[in-house]
């Protein structure tokens, strides 16, 4: 059997017999009634809903991180008692790294200018 020919015949059949464009009775009335019952959503409302959803998910992530940090610091191994405090120290160092760096690189007050004044 020639499958290519069969394929062409079937495509031709689909072209030859297009679907009906019949519209059910009073369909437009039905749509209009639907539109009247469900008004167009307000963009601000949608934005607010999206923000509140995001707030909940961020709160959940924050709780998860908080809990994991709490357990990580409290469960210090017996042989290494400093692990918990090291973690918190590392965290603090990382968070304040930018401030420390700024402190180190901050130029000294120009003494010459002070003398001039």
């Amino acid at each position: 059997m020639n499958l290519n020919q069969l394929n062409q015949k079937l495509i031709a059949a689909a072209r030859h017999q297009p679907p009906s464009d019949r519209v059910p009775y009073a369909f437009e009335k039905r749509i209009m009634a639907h539109l009247a019952t469900c008004p167009v959503p307000d963009l601000l409302t949608l934005w607010g809903q999206a923000l509140s959803r995001a707030a909940f998910s961020y709160a959940a992530v924050m709780l998860l991180i908080g809990a994991s940090a709490f357990y990580l610091t409290s469960e210090t191994p017996a042989g290494n008692p400093a692990t918990g405090s090291e973690l918190s120290q590392d965290l603090q160092d990382t968070l304040l790294a930018a401030v420390d760096l700024a402190d180190q690189t901050e130029p000294l007050e120009p003494t010459e200018q002070i003398e001039e004044l």
Partner: peptide
């Protein structure tokens, strides 16, 4: 179509049902 491809016409209901199925 198998016996005589030219006799299987495109306007037949069977052809439409077959293409819809595929």
């Amino acid at each position: 179509f198998v016996t005589a491809p030219s006799s299987a016409t495109e306007d037949a209901a069977g052809a439409k049902l077959l293409i819809d199925r595929i």
